[in-house]
Design a protein around this nucleic acid. Structure first.
Lengths: 350, 350
DNA sequence: GCCTCGGGAGTAAACATTTTCTCAGGGAAA
DNA sequence: TTTCCCTGAGAAAATGTTTACTCCCGAGGC
């Protein structure tokens, strides 16, 4: 069931079969028809490794994410896969779990399998590890920040836009003490989000209070831990912004365990707007960063490098999605409670 | 940077390099050392496609899941990947989204890439589509049910055990009207879960009421829709069991939107025990089906076919994990509320 | 001392393609 | 009619491995 069988059945040479399969235009229509019929009849599939070997093109794109169990990433992977497959590429997934050793193995696998391009969506680079890829001139895409070399693109996320919308939303509701649960600050994206938050506070005329800023780790457990620390402090914030939705879910959970109500006692805003956010109780106000945009920008950046185009920088927007985890701060405008104009009415306790 | 370069640098033949890499024991230790040094110095990686081409082994395992955005599957993928990589395999992921056309493409990709084995974890087979794989004698693993052919294994999930525990738990709390939100009934696994539920009801001496059984689709939206239908009925159940956690989360969300409290008004039990279940408000009582067990059973079944072992059937356990979404039915034993002995005290509203 | 056996290393074939040459044949121009 | 060019198809080289086969050399047995 190789190309020779097809050639024999179609009474042509193997070269003609190959050309037919690859849609080389010089092949005679009549022969091509015979070839396609033979292919169908034999149920023939070209051998990918042989193709890759001789052509030097694996048609494989790598995607390295930090944590496949964070729902943000499956949504991203889905989009990435769809766009990649659409363009005739297969994808290779690696999940690092923030572990440099796993990262190392992922990269090794990408190199071994000859991935033609790799998207590193871990939101934080481990520079030395990636040299193996960069040294081989494998096109790369990063998020936020990237070494400045040829064949490397960056997806610049405009954290500031969405986060400012979030802070403005809180400020408009009357919040002045706004806490922040950050991601691990060694991650560039976590730093950017925190910086955007501080900047937005300034723009709203609110002073930054370092005691209201907690470092988490982008997991639900991290959110719980941060909330516990926060609750242990004496002067609670009236609203908390989180560096991602998983943190927000953890915070929400911990507040609920402590008997605090969201948004009546404390408002919460997440980041990413994962699908699950809308299902939380209360549904989580969050800052959306489109996974499909991110995915298609990543693929198109890689394709750019591979197929001649370029455009080294892509911009990704963020925007606030208001749901029911944000409301007026406790004690203010309480007579209006339940009649908020900016958010749909939450389910109030009986 | 191919094997010849290494051979040259180490002053040996390419065959010796190949043997060294593959740990063929006959190679002289001294030469092997020279080879390894050369490999390190050149930073050489063997070309996977060439290896695969000549050896006929791609060292690729396929994993087809129904929906990568359902958190159950990333957890499964994680486990599968870990075990596969541990055994020197790479994985190829396909997500069908319950769409036969996508399934078709997934299978085609698996065949084209020469996957050595494929785990079909869609919890429901599309028989004719899989013939392409079966015809090529690719070892397969299914969940619950599989065509009886050589090189095909089944992972039999013992739904009944966990579901019975769940029903018993509810019955012990005093529930007699227990609803069920099933998955899509064309999926074998959804049918099995429903059947196990009915059987367990019988064992607890509770009659099956068909009007309390709703068909969902294993998504949160499906759970919401089912809950809406349920709420539209006149005689509400006091507890609801769901065919997976996503449904349960949807139901929880919809009940909350309607002002009903869980577990005070209605108890809920999910299935799968995804990580997120513990973070819901209230934390979801669920029936655990271990992803890591499933993953390692799948890989070991495939390896069995590939490397000579066999064992065609693996058993997967399920067990109840009690959290706070289950409690006494409304109106009964209300004097005991807050003093349940079987469940940790829930956070009661003030 | 010679022959045989075997350990260990090298040579070359095989794997299934793509792609560059090469060549045949036909049509058009001189 | 001859020559040139062009179209289209086949032959063969090349891709980077693994592995069967060969070969050399040393040791041991007769």
């Amino acid at each position: 069931m190789d190309i020779h069988a097809v050639a024999k059945l179609a009474h042509v040479s193997i070269a003609t079969v190959s050309r037919t399969i690859n849609h080389v235009p010089t092949v005679n229509a009549k022969l091509a028809k015979r070839v396609w019929e033979a292919i169908r009849e034999l149920n023939y599939y070209p051998n990918t490794q042989a193709r890759a070997l001789v052509s030097g093109r694996s048609r494989l794109l790598g995607l390295i994410v930090s944590e496949i169990t964070n729902p943000f990433f499956p949504e991203l992977i889905q989009g990435f896969e769809d766009v990649a497959v659409e363009n005739g590429y297969e994808i290779l997934i690696g999940s690092t779990n923030y572990d440099p050793e796993r990262m190392q193995r992922c990269i090794r696998r990408m190199v071994e399998r000859n991935a033609e391009g790799v998207a590193v969506m871990t939101f934080g680079i481990e520079q030395p590890l990636l040299d193996q890829l960069a040294d081989r001139n494998v096109p790369l895409v990063f998020v936020d920040v990237a070494p400045n070399r040829p064949a490397i693109s960056v997806l610049k996320v405009d954290y500031h836009h969405g986060i400012r919308q979030g802070v403005q939303h809180l400020a408009a509701l009357g919040h002045r003490r706004i806490g922040f649960v950050s991601g691990p600050l060694r991650l560039h994206s976590a730093q950017s989000r925190l910086a955007a938050f501080k900047k937005a506070l300034g723009e709203c005329g609110i002073a930054v209070e370092e005691t209201l800023i907690f470092e988490g780790d982008h997991t639900m457990e991290g959110g719980m831990a941060a909330a516990q620390k926060m609750l242990a402090g004496k002067d609670l914030p009236t609203a908390i912004m989180c560096s991602n939705d998983m943190l927000a879910i953890g915070v929400l959970h911990e507040l609920s365990r402590s008997g605090l109500r969201v948004p009546d006692d404390i408002s919460i805003i997440g980041f990413d707007d994962i699908h699950m956010a809308a299902m939380m109780i209360p549904p989580l106000t969050s800052i959306q960063m489109s996974r499909t945009d991110l995915a298609s920008a990543a693929v198109s950046a890689l394709r750019g490098h591979l197929e001649g185009g370029q455009k080294r920088e892509h911009r990704i927007d963020t925007r606030l999605v208001v749901r029911e985890s944000t409301g007026f701060p406790r004690g203010t405008m309480s007579h209006l409670r339940g009649r908020r104009e900016t958010v749909p009415a939450a389910v109030e306790p009986a």
